[in-house]
């Protein structure tokens, strides 16, 4: 560390979301509290899933970590630095819910885009490796419009991984896919992540997805978003799809579902 950030005190966390709140001002002048004081620490190499109903502010947290929004209160640090400096140094990988592939570029060139944006020489070997990893060998020259939804998301994930990012952010990457493809993609993502072991933050509203992929699941309540529960996932890695059929998986899933739907819990 040649020049440590002067204001930021040193923390051992890879991602430190320190009492962060976000208030949006609407067009009619009213203010909307999207996130209400969320405090979350993520270790290096840890995979954390943010689980919550739609509109609970979980995507807002991800956008705050990606420096796409600024927090209204509190502070976010990634490895003791401002999140913006991470993206400026091209060390951030993000897979969005809408794949955000450029329609005029081939699969290969979409994956190579971060190299070009960073002004680095394109590493064709790395692209070929990642294409193999996400199971898209032979589709190098296809264009996004020729691919299925699942394949587009794989390209998007390969693009997020191409520069070996320090932090990987996944914003419901499989939210638009059908249930079968989604389960299949989760198995793939689990395998891919096992090979790279990047500090990851996944935003999802699927209990099974969160449990299968993450080391820790954080449950958020509806608006305004706040953390209501945090559980450590005990399953060994690499995880096989069969894990999802064990009794332990089901009891954890029930626990998380109850935390997601407190009204139902109170009624029963």
């Amino acid at each position: 560390m040649s020049a440590p950030h002067p204001q930021v005190s040193s923390t051992p966390w890879a991602i430190d979301i320190d009492h962060v709140g976000k208030v949006f001002t609407l067009d009619n002048g009213e203010s909307l509290v999207a996130v209400d004081t969320v405090d979350l620490k993520i270790e290096k190499g840890e995979f954390v899933a943010l689980l919550g109903p739609s509109g609970c502010g979980k995507s807002t947290i991800l956008r705050l970590v990606a420096a796409l929004e600024d927090p209204t209160t509190g502070r976010i640090a990634i490895e003791n630095r401002d999140p913006l400096s991470l993206s400026r140094q091209h060390r951030l990988g993000v897979a969005f819910q809408d794949h955000a592939l450029l329609p005029w570029l081939s699969v290969k060139n979409n994956i190579a885009l971060p190299y070009k944006v960073a002004g680095r020489p394109v590493d064709h070997e790395r692209i070929a490796d990642l294409l193999g990893l996400v199971g898209l060998k032979g589709f190098e020259n296809a264009r996004p419009s020729q691919l299925s939804g699942g394949m587009r998301q794989r390209v998007s994930i390969a693009r997020a991984l191409i520069l070996n990012p320090d932090v990987l952010l996944l914003d419901e990457p499989f939210g638009a896919l059908d249930a079968v493809t989604r389960r299949h993609m989760n198995v793939e993502l689990q395998r891919i992540w096992g090979e790279e072991r990047i500090t990851s933050l996944l935003v999802t509203h699927s209990v099974e997805e969160a449990l299968f992929l993450a080391d820790r699941v954080i449950v958020m309540s509806g608006r305004p978003g706040r953390v209501v529960k945090s559980i450590a996932v005990p399953f060994e890695r690499p995880r096989r799809p069969e894990v999802q059929r064990t009794a332990e998986f089901h009891s954890l899933a029930d626990e998380l579902t109850l935390a997601l739907e407190p009204e139902e819990a109170a009624a029963s």
């Binding site: 951030l92 969005f96 960073a118």
Partner: peptide
């Protein structure tokens, strides 16, 4: 611009010039 591409270029840390060349012009 294609949907989501502006967020993408921001998280990729694109300079204004590279954003113009790789996103806006095409």
């Amino acid at each position: 611009l294609p949907p989501g591409s502006e967020d993408l270029f921001q998280v990729l840390g694109a300079s204004k010039w590279r954003r113009f060349v790789h996103l806006v012009m095409p």
